[in-house]
Structure formats: structure tokens, C-alpha cells
Design a protein around this nucleic acid. Structure first.
Lengths: 166, 166
DNA sequence: CTTAGTGCAAAACATTTGCATTTAT
DNA sequence: ATAAATGCAAATGTTTTGCACTAAG
């Protein structure tokens, strides 16, 4: 299933690197800004703005949501951060190449399968050939039916009797 | 690029068919319910709840949003309707197999390319082989970079300098 | 008759905006 | 000193919920 990696867009490895990127772009680096960045580095996957607001290492005052959003926006503009949507919840933010986790969600049973991005290389390549697009399946999860649900549906005749509301 | 179709889940062709499906499931069919269904049949693509509320053929009172949502929910439960998300706007609803339009959106220039679902058959097949999933790329658009943006980014070195905020 | 479905008002939720104040530079 | 970024409050847009009332069966 797994293909050759070939990752390229170099990730930001340290907080200072990101801070530097901010300054290079003419931004100031305030305390909330730094805390947002720290939270992103501390996170082990995409996290919500809310999570970031409450996630200071020191147990200090939670960040203002406003400030979190403004910082995330700024960081996204710089390409340092990107966000994904899982289901209908809030957007989830992560340091840029960190969002590269592909999710397959079953519209019937709700099962979520997380796969290594490399597993999609062949698919991505095919899309590139067909449409010229460099697809990235990480912004939104890939929806569909998992094997067992697909089989059950095939058996039962009609279309999509249930749907996990998602 | 295009593969053999092999569509299967039979669509609902008439309003009465849908009404019948509702009753079969033990639901009553009120005037708002009927108007929502009519609006979906009248629509030529996925439409927002708001659109449906204001879209009666007769220029009567607009539907209650509440009622529209409740009916859409019910219809989704029955598999008659499904919804998709385009960008960060409201959910867009359509009669079930009607949402089968694949969208490629460029994260940089915002360009949206709509392609026939058949164009994705090869990709879908590959995913089926690799993960057992029957993928459906229509619930969320496929994100990525269009050819020209990808080329510009390749040229300029680093990761993702802009992003259309999406 | 019965109760599913409605209408209306209000809440919930994620996010954005305005503006006076703070603060990084 | 200057203007970027904050904090707070209020608005936005989408969807959900509570509840008394209406109407579909």
C-alpha cells in the first residue's frame, strides 16, 4: 500500500524558526503569538482554536479566542500553519506539513481510518496526470463507505439507508 | 482519463417517489416538507438551506429555516438527500446521487474545477484496492494546487506563501 | 383523536469585526 | 514614538433546541 515518500516542503522544526519567519514578514511577536506557536509545537496532531487557547504549558490565563484566531490566520498566510476539517466540528490547526495525515471516514458507520500520506501517492499522481492538480486530501477527510458497510449496502439493494448524520 | 461508469444506487426520480419513501418510513408529509422536496427537485445543483427556504415556486411565504433543516435532516436519514461542503460556506443539499459532482479547488488562487464523477473512477478504484473504501469525493471538495499555482510555488522555493484563506 | 411536525424565539457554536488600549519594535 | 497586536464586547452566519400549537394520519 505504501509508496515512495518524496516529501519536500521543508517543515519548521523549532519555535524560533517560526518566530523568525514572522519577523521576516514584518510582524511583531507578542506573548499570545508565542503561546499559540508553542501550543502548535506541543500538539501531537491538528488541534482546535479552543484547544490552543486553553493549552498553555504554564497554567496561566487562557488565551483570548480572538487572539488565537488572529494568530492562526497570520501563520496560515505565511504558510507555517494550515487547517483541516474533521466532520462538522471546529477547524483543526497544525504546523504545515503536520496536517498531512489522510483520513478516510465511513459515511455509514462513522469509522475513521487514518493513513500515511504516502499511501495516497499513487492516487495523487493519477490526479496530477488527469487534471494537473496537486491534490492534498488532508484539508477535508475523504468520505465514502468502508469495506464492510459497502458490502452490506450492496446486499440490501437500495442506496444509503442510514448515514451517520455527518 | 474516463473509466466505465457502473453507477448503481437508483435515484429518486419524482416527488411522489420521495413522498412515498417518507410515508413508508412512518413520516407525515406536511406542506413545508413537500416544499423542501420540490425545491430540491427544482434545483440544478446542491443548494443551501437558505436557498431552499426562499425557493418556493409559488411566491408564498418563505419557509422557516428550522423546518427546512428538520426536513433535510429527515431526508438525509432516509438516504434521499445528502449534503456537501464547498469551502467554508453553508452546507449544500441535493437529492442523493445528485451531489455526485467532484470539485477540485486550488488553495492558492481559489479556482474551482468541476469534473464529471467518471473522471475519478480510476482514482476511486485505486483507493478501493488500497483501503477497501468506496470513496466519494463529493462530500468535500478535493483541495490542492492547480497546475499553474503549483508551478509558481515550485519556482519560488519554500512551502505555501499565500493561501486563499480557505 | 394522536402525536409528528410546525412556527417562533432563543440558544449554541465557530468565527469575525470594531475600537480603545497595550506593547513590541 | 509608532503602528501592530491585543482584549473585550458585540456582531456574524449556520445550525440546533425548547415548547406551545397546528394539522396529517
Amino acid at each position: 500500500v505504501t509508496q515512495a515518500p518524496e516529501r519536500k516542503a521543508l517543515a519548521f522544526e523549532t519555535i524560533d524558526e517560526v518566530v523568525g519567519e514572522l519577523r521576516r514578514a514584518g510582524h511583531r511577536v507578542s506573548t499570545p503569538a508565542r503561546l499559540v506557536i508553542e501550543a502548535l509545537f506541543r500538539a501531537d496532531g491538528p488541534v482546535s482554536a479552543e484547544h490552543i487557547a486553553g493549552a498553555q504549558g504554564d497554567g496561566g490565563t487562557p488565551l483570548e479566542m480572538t487572539s488565537v484566531y488572529r494568530n492562526l490566520e497570520r501563520l496560515q498566510q505565511l504558510g507555517v500553519v494550515s487547517h483541516v476539517h474533521m466532520g462538522h466540528g471546529p477547524g483543526l490547526y497544525a504546523l504545515s506539513p503536520g496536517t498531512d495525515r489522510e483520513h478516510l471516514v465511513c459515511d455509514r458507520c462513522g469509522r475513521v481510518t487514518t493513513v500515511d500520506p504516502a499511501a495516497f501517492d499513487a492516487v495523487r499522481e493519477q490526479i496530477r496526470e488527469a487534471f494537473g492538480y496537486r491534490a492534498r486530501f488532508s484539508h477535508f477527510p475523504v468520505h465514502g463507505y468502508c469495506q464492510s458497510c459497502a458490502e452490506q449496502l450492496d446486499a440490501s439493494g437500495h442506496g444509503a439507508p442510514h448515514s451517520h448524520s455527518e
